[in-house]
Design a protein around this nucleic acid. Structure first.
Lengths: 112, 112
DNA sequence: TTGACGGTATGACGGATGTCCAACAATCTG
DNA sequence: CAGATTGTTGGACATCCGTCATACCGTCAA
């Protein structure tokens, strides 16, 4: 896990410029710890592929890994990232890329 | 140039996840129009390589090209981008990735 | 028309990237 | 110990990406 001062914006952007990894970061943006278990992340890719993505995120300085027994969990390095790249995580976690744009008729927000 | 509604966050992130293109976007963040002329952008790469990067940015929905005679200029689609991805351009344009992180103090706020 | 300038289009090439597979390691359970 | 669970490591492979070189096109100036 790199020192946050050594993390460049390019490192960070390259890490999140992948559909799977962006989804992971957006999920982790809730501030909670999430397991690496395949049951939680169902992207339809192989187990080792997920390991690969988790490694990219960690090496990019985005996440921290917590090992407990035989289960591993990851969490965003939120405070450090917010200090180094103000507003970036918030912007990435925004639902703009997930929800449908105004013109398209996506799933109605179901106000209830 | 794609409709802003068709632009995904992944498109956008892939476009800026390159040193040259991120610098271009950060420069364009001043809201002004900048020429594509090689004299303005000296990245030490070939002319056609710059054309390639400009194309990526345009196809990703980040920039707009204005042709005047034999000179081409580009500008950020700032308003549309801010509406679709709130805070993202601001976060990318921040100097965090440019200034030196060595001290970890960040740029002095210069109260003046 | 000829030439210079600004930029694009196309093809080629080496390196990076995402994916799978098989093997391995560490931990809990019996 | 044996077995199951969780995750990593390494290799292999196809694809994508950034770069260059060349050729080409449109505009302005003689």
């Amino acid at each position: 896990m790199p020192d946050i001062a050594d993390v460049t914006m390019i490192d960070l952007l390259r890490a999140v410029a992948d559909p799977i990894r962006l989804r992971i970061v957006q999920t982790l943006a809730d501030g909670l710890r999430h397991g690496k278990c395949g049951t939680h992340w169902d992207f339809g890719v192989h187990k080792s592929t997920m390991t690969h993505h988790f490694r990219i995120l960690r090496q990019a300085g985005l996440t921290r890994t917590v090992v407990a027994g035989r289960t591993h969990s990851i969490e965003l390095r939120r405070d450090e990232l917010d200090a180094r790249f103000p507003g970036l995580i918030d912007a990435l976690a925004a639902t703009a890329g997930v929800s449908s744009p105004a013109t398209a008729h996506g799933p109605a927000p179901r106000s209830g």
